[in-house]
Design a protein around this nucleic acid. Structure first.
Length: 351
DNA sequence: TTTCCCTTCACGG
DNA sequence: CTAACGCCGTGAAGGGAAA
């Protein structure tokens, strides 16, 4: 007999843009878009985060910045100030930890906590959630949303439904019905491709969770491998994954998209060296042991390739990484005549 | 044979 | 008119090489 869990999920509302609003109060009420430089509509990047005013114009995160600019050129467009958001994130989750102990950080603005023992009941869990929300707002002047459920997936979906500046509990008895009318893509791990395969199999479009439940477990495993079994459970509100409070970093990397596609070896190697240097600094700062390097190359037609090589686990410097990786980079230039759009460098870390 | 390495793919914030 | 398209990170699959 295994005891039921109570999981809490916290997600900051439109995080980057909200931080910018807090720092510049005269932005409040205006559409704010944090992301790449729009450059009068010629920018190459995408929207990182935008506030709800910007969403009224159809602007969304992940959208090419050129399209966002077209939709509403008068919006406030701001660059991503990642170092600052990182600091804000640390203070927020310090507050959260004071309330619930260790948490699993999934990004700068999201975390899970297993509050089974601390709460004991959904009622108490919601009190804890409310206290966190009040404390975060009092100390950081930022709003967030909290979701509570019997597992990580249900907590996350509950949170999604309560946004922004809200809180929502889905009790274990309610899970099945709570999600049945939602699109399959509400299940974490099910994206456009997976949905398409499911739709093809059922011969039905605009698939809802209730529809996808008609696919037999064996069929899902057949279609999606071991993930199929997870999908079968998740479609029924079941998620056995635990809150992992100490996860190790597996890779550290950095990539760069050129202003214009290029084959100029000078330009490419210089940029690449910068990436290697910047990643090396982070590796040294965090005393990470590494065992491999990966070079990423995206060509003008968006085709993306990687080349990697491994070496004995240990502590290495920027020169070593460069020496190991630059031949891989040069192979891309010799083996193709296409122009290059992006280069990237990554190290693989090991305990 | 089993394990490791390399590469790609899908996904998510 | 249509296409437009970052920068991180994770996990899994599948094929081939190495042990």
């Amino acid at each position: 007999m295994k005891k039921k869990r109570i999981i809490l999920h916290i997600d900051m509302d439109y995080f980057f843009a909200q931080v910018e609003e807090r720092e510049n109060p005269h932005f409040r009420g205006k559409p704010v878009v944090v992301g790449a430089d729009p450059k009068e509509g010629k920018g190459r990047g995408v929207v990182s985060t935008c506030n709800y005013e910007a969403r009224k114009y159809g602007i969304r995160s992940g959208m090419p910045i050129s399209r966002a600019y077209k939709l509403f050129p008068e919006a406030v467009f701001l660059p991503v100030n990642m170092h600052f958001y990182e600091k804000v994130s640390v203070s927020i989750f310090d507050i959260v930890r004071k309330n619930v102990g260790e948490v699993e950080l999934v990004s700068l603005d999201e975390a899970y906590a297993d509050i089974t023992k601390k709460a004991g009941s959904y009622k108490k869990a919601e009190e804890i959630g409310e206290r966190i929300r009040k404390m975060v707002f009092r100390k950081e002047k930022l709003t967030c949303t909290v979701g509570i459920g019997e597992n990580k997936m249900m907590a996350k979906i509950a949170c999604e439904e309560a946004k922004p500046n809200g809180i929502k509990t889905v009790k274990s008895t309610e899970s099945l019905k709570f999600i049945e009318k939602m699109k399959v893509e509400k299940i974490p791990g099910i994206g456009p491709k997976t949905r398409e395969v499911m739709e093809k199999h059922l011969g039905k479009k605009n698939l809802k969770i209730k529809d996808a439940r008609k696919i037999k477990k064996e069929k899902l495993v057949d279609l999606f491998g071991k993930r199929g079994g997870d999908f079968y459970n998740k479609l029924r509100g079941v998620d056995k994954s635990s809150v992992e409070t100490e996860r190790d970093v597996k890779t550290v990397g950095k990539e760069h998209t050129f202003q214009e596609d290029t084959r100029d070896p000078q330009k490419i190697t210089k940029t690449f060296k910068g990436l290697v240097f910047s990643v090396s600094k982070k590796v040294e700062r965090e005393s990470l042991s590494t065992k491999g390097v990966v070079v990423v190359c995206r060509f003008e037609d968006f085709e993306t390739h990687t080349r990697q090589t491994s070496f004995p686990k240990g502590d290495y410097d920027s020169d070593f990484f460069y020496k190991k990786s630059v031949p891989l980079l040069l192979r891309f230039l010799t083996e193709s005549n296409k122009k290059i759009r992006l280069v990237g460098f990554r190290v693989i870390t090991g305990s």
